[in-house]
Design a protein around this nucleic acid. Structure first.
Length: 490
RNA sequence: GGGCCGCUAGCUCAAUGGCAGAGCAGCUGACUCUUAAUCAGCGGGUUCGGGGUUCAAGUCCCCGGCGGCUCACCA
């Protein structure tokens, strides 16, 4: 609230002034601490009775008892109780204590002890004021429950909720573990352009922007794929990137317009090798972070231990959707079958769209345990290699966990002639108005024409993987600052 | 985009169409082992915005905003 300060803020600003009048700098530059609260608690037996220095934000209530008071401070490792006593602190220090509010940062030096109830506590012999919060913190025992506020002001959510702090720590450690896993297998991490003159490599609507210097329209990338394959053409045989991709599409529990993708490409490998890599990656990350491959997902327990079952798309469609798409030669018959299966297909939907719709509404949600869905019709996947020269199927798999697509992978198409033909087919569909058609990337085709080794590749949705590891069914709970509608009026 | 629900004090929530309230937080005072501290007292409101009905609207009606859930769309 710029301008007018509400009553609570005014009260805190008055305390700020009072500190300055006492000659206390309310915003000093640094504080040397000896322990994090977690270290102190973990090694308390050795530390007990010695003087320690801790620092953090005052959270929860300050239990003021007149000549003494208890409070908790929160630091990066957790909470610890501090005790302020007039006798120990002295009159001057105690008058600083009297100006504390929940939310302020303090440094406390004093003896590590246990209270009568056994709680590990630092009894302050010295109190250093470190920073003033002039706005109040979220209410202390309901915590922060307004979902919008939790997302818009995630810092409050982090202060108020240990669970939320744990989720984002888990996410960070998951990304590190993935990097270690891939580095250990000889992969090189690279960075490729996010601003592109053409958004290719997937079927999605891009965000558009503009370069003043180049006087050209640019797009934010919708996939990393085609640049990483250029790197493979250049001889980087094992390459990956972990980065943001942007899709100008719907927002729901499983979709945020910007999300984090890990894509990797491995020369001389096919999609079978990539399956082994993915199940090994995911299960070993789970073991490293959680100590187990078994994770809770809502009411289900998921076991990430390899091997994951390989099921063909066609058999799953027959089993779970009741539709054998291979039995319907023309699109009209398939539309009728989709309608019979309970969908509302439009007449304009082509075969790829129909299969995708059937799969995503009738098959995907049922794939709770890890599963590789393999062998897709070629028309759904323009960048994948055919199973054999005359096959209608391509070597592609999608990895599913918790009913969500976690990864998408192929034996990469490296025949430049066929790749051009398949991209031209897509371009034709695009010209007919199919918004799901992929763009023809002439520059990429030129790279392929210089020769790419046989290569397997995969893209893994990091956000969704973290959702599974953290048992969070909403993608916004694993993104620190998810995209929200802009606030009106500031 | 559709449906349902919600928006009241800093926070969490009340209020048959009839004086807008409680707990916590805040302020004043008491209290040197509390942890939802306790006890006594005090202040705090554009009831999301706009319009309408009514003697009277937080409450009913209309329009709008934002959010949640859900369906649809979308890799």
């Amino acid at each position: 609230m710029p301008g007018e300060l509400d009553e609570l803020t005014q009260a805190r600003v008055r305390k700020l002034d009072a500190l300055r009048e006492m000659g206390v700098d309310p915003f000093p530059k640094k504080y040397e601490r000896s322990h994090l609260s977690g270290e102190l608690i973990q090694h308390f037996e050795e530390i007990e009775g010695t003087t320690v220095r801790v620092a953090g934000r005052l959270v929860g209530a300050i239990r003021d008892l007149g000549g003494s008071g208890f409070a908790h401070i929160l630091d990066a490792s957790g909470r610890i109780q501090v005790l302020f006593r007039r006798n120990t602190l002295g009159a001057e220090g105690f008058s600083v204590y009297r100006l504390l509010d929940a939310g302020d940062f303090v440094g406390v030096a004093g003896k590590a002890m246990r209270t009568r109830t056994g709680e590990i506590t630092v009894e302050a012999a010295e109190l250093t004021f470190l920073s003033k919060a002039i706005r109040p913190l979220p209410e202390k025992w309901h915590g922060l429950t307004d979902v919008e506020k939790r997302h818009r002001q995630r810092y409050l959510d982090l202060i108020a909720s240990e669970d939320v702090r744990r989720v984002f720590a888990l996410r960070s450690r998951a990304v590190s573990a993935i990097r270690r896993f891939l580095d250990g297998r000889g992969f090189l991490e690279v960075e490729t352009p996010i601003l592109q003159t053409l958004a290719a490599g997937a079927a999605a609507r891009p965000f558009e922007t503009f370069s003043n210097a180049l006087d050209a329209s640019l797009y934010l990338r919708i996939a990393i794929e085609l640049h990483l394959k250029r790197a493979v053409v250049g001889g980087i045989e094992r390459v990956y990137e972990i980065g943001r991709v942007f899709r100008n599409e719907g927002v729901d529990r499983q979709h945020n317009p910007e999300f984090t993708m890990m894509e990797l490409y491995q020369a001389y490998a096919d999609y079978e090798d990539i399956m082994e890599l993915v199940e090994s990656l995911v299960s070993s990350v789970a073991v490293e972070l959680l100590g187990t491959t078994r994770v809770q997902w809502g009411n289900d327990e998921i076991d990430l231990a390899p091997p994951w079952p390989r099921r063909t798309l066609r058999e799953l469609m027959i089993e779970l959707a009741g539709v054998d798409y291979a039995a319907y030669g023309d699109d009209g018959a398939l539309i009728a079958a989709a309608r019979a299966a309970g969908l509302n297909p439009e007449d304009t939907w082509n075969r790829a769209k129909l299969i995708d719709e059937l799969k995503s509404s009738l098959v995907d949600p049922k794939l709770v345990q890890p599963c590789f869905v393999v062998d897709y019709p070629a028309e759904t996947t323009p960048l994948a290699k055919r199973k054999s020269s005359e096959s209608l199927l391509v070597e592609r798999f999608e990895a599913f966990i918790g009913g969500m697509e976690i990864g998408d992978a192929f034996s990469e198409l490296n025949d430049p002639i066929e790749q051009r033909r398949r991209m031209e087919d897509q371009a034709a569909l695009g010209a007919e108005g199919d918004p799901g058609a992929q763009a023809l990337d002439e520059d990429f085709l030129e790279a392929l024409e210089h020769g790419m080794p046989p290569t397997g590749g995969v893209g893994i949705g990091i956000d969704r993987l973290v959702m599974v590891l953290a048992n969070q069914p909403n993608i916004r709970e694993v993104i620190l600052f998810p995209l929200l509608r802009p606030r009106v009026g500031g």
